[in-house]
Design a protein around this nucleic acid. Sequence first.
DNA 1: TGCTGTTATTTCAACGTTGAGATTATCAAT
DNA 2: ATTGATAATCTCAACGTTGAAATAACAGCA
Lengths: 183, 183
Amino acid sequence: MNVNYLNVEIFKGEMFMAIDAVDSVIEQWGRERPDVDVWPTGVISRVQRLSRLLDKELKAFFAQHDLEVWEFDVLSTLRRCGPPYERTAGAITSATMVTSGAITNRVDRMEAKGLVERIRDTADRRTVRIRLTERGHQLMDELIALHAANGERILSPLSREECDRVAEALRVLLVFLGDKRLE
Amino acid sequence: MNVNYLNVEIFKGEMFMAIDAVDSVIEQWGRERPDVDVWPTGVISRVQRLSRLLDKELKAFFAQHDLEVWEFDVLSTLRRCGPPYERTAGAITSATMVTSGAITNRVDRMEAKGLVERIRDTADRRTVRIRLTERGHQLMDELIALHAANGERILSPLSREECDRVAEALRVLLVFLGDKRLE
DNA sequence: TGCTGTTATTTCAACGTTGAGATTATCAAT
DNA sequence: ATTGATAATCTCAACGTTGAAATAACAGCA
């Protein structure tokens, strides 16, 4: 019996106790197909499951402030880029990883809510600049610290050093799969 | 100038070069709101962005075999649980993290495709057992090794030790957010 | 000026999921 | 037996995204 350094997984010879759903998956495959080692699932499925649980956490958090997660994503993109707090629809599209059609839809509704406004570029009339309104700006300035604190709560079971190591490893994978710096 | 052990991030005094989109986000917030440290984003946003990119990778992979990712998820759940290769709709629901309505829909279509079949439980007639057909079984037995190899490709920029460390850290977060072993 | 190719955004039908309610069945207690 | 509570699945309308096509504008060049 061997307890690892995080004290969350207990091996007993070849058998081990499942702690989360992904452990169960790996354990089951090990029994059914011992000829195939599905270890990559330990990372890949966890990233996917965690992403879903994070969605729920963030949804619950922003609901306290009458905001949808996707609204925060757009507002955040506009606020953090600095004065004059505007970005083209295309820039928001790549920053948020959704299709252009979805951004049109989102901006429509946020414009109606008074959080952003569309401004047609005078130089290139194809492009549309989405600008943060005063109301959207104030909302973000209130929320960003709370959002960061909520993030710290979510990551609280890990040390800062562990978080940094995870972040670096995930960045390597992101770059490998094509993620690039913004702009 | 300080190159870290993964050689992917270069610091220059307080300034640092963004490598992926999340670096850009953190960098921008650091300029606009130096009073707020958004470091949790380095993990949280990366998990979410990586999950999306993984979805695309898996979608492309399974498309080569005329299969949707969600079809693989259901088939995998049934195959790895061992004989008689069946699970209740509820068990599949929690294993795949989607709602029961979605599972009804998925099983409908997979039944039409001949990959699974519904069997009403004789003991408890509320429950429906979803059973793998011979065709579904063969399909999974072909695919699982290829799927594992594809996972190794996706994780190839990291060492096995790094993957294991990441998997352990993600498991801690999953358990913290309520994920449990299956069954 | 007209042509061709490219870029930026919007439109929209198809699609799948969600979430709440309906349905059917079981179980415990009376 | 009957009642009430709980459980498992299905139904379905509402919703948001996707992906492709449409629209509009620019850029280079003859």
